[in-house]
Nucleic acid binder design. Structure first.
Lengths: 136, 136
DNA sequence: TTTAATCGTAACAACTTTTATTACAATTAA
DNA sequence: TTAATTGTAATAAAAGTTGTTACGATTAAA
């Protein structure tokens, strides 16, 4: 991946986990990451959809974790931000008249899936709680 | 990763492995992938630097494998095309006055390195020979 | 009831990365 | 000498990423 979304979402969740029971505003979180608060709100929207955080609008609004931080894994974050396979994209339009071109995408498909599975399984074993505990 | 370079380089190597001892032109290889031959030549240049292929210029020129396909692993390909970590980029400029902002990049650094290592180790165990053998 | 803070979201701009393409000098086998 | 090929620069086009502004809707508190 060539973006900062995983790092951003982990940062957001780490802030929430470190301030359990408090409504943190997107502005406040953004100022720790040093990015635009709109970017934070976009990610928070996805985190809400997945039931990981709950958000309250209006004055004194903000977000907090909806689940215990021991019940959130980094694989949840990965699934949220994943928009490409670990090994990248296939070349669509390979030549069907070439033996290699004809079959390679099916072979690459299997390889890509296994590689992604490996990463997800690894991240599944790391909870937000464990990750944040390192900060203390 | 959000590009096709891994798929492209594997395709190139698969073609060369499937035609051992023959000089394949970048045009010929490109026509199987259905991309521009210049893209193929760029990747071939990197493969040469790493001693994986040898290229001959001029008429009847082209490329062939320099190593046995059983001595080339997909980790070699990954190392060649890798330009970002599996989990993406860190947010540089995090707030040093925030306990999370201050430490998160060091924590993420460890996580990113372990994840990348996992992928490389997996790919290390797959040779080009094995991969190409699937086509037969 | 009013005010002020906050979210949600659209719209757009700026920047970076990726891919495609053209062109041509240098090289080499026939 | 010719024709095919590589190497590479230059540039353009497309796609992806990040930053920013703006503003309506919502909500707690004064």
């Amino acid at each position: 991946m060539n973006n900062t979304r995983f790092a951003t979402v982990v940062h957001i969740l780490a802030m929430l986990a470190d301030n359990e029971g408090e409504w943190l505003s997107s502005d406040w979180i953004a100022s720790s990451i040093n990015i635009n608060p709109v970017m934070v709100r976009k990610e928070l929207g996805l985190l809400q959809e997945r039931g990981l955080v709950v958000t309250r609008k209006g004055k004194e609004g903000g977000s907090m974790l909806q689940k215990n931080s021991a019940e959130i894994s980094l694989a949840d974050v990965y699934a949220l931000v994943k928009n490409a396979d670990v090994l990248g994209k296939k070349n669509l339009h390979t030549n069907p008249n070439c033996p290699i071109g004809k079959q390679i995408n099916s072979e690459l498909g299997g390889l890509f899936a296994k590689t992604d599975g490996l990463v997800s399984a690894y991240l599944q074993g790391i909870t937000l709680d464990e990750f944040v505990r390192q900060f203390r």
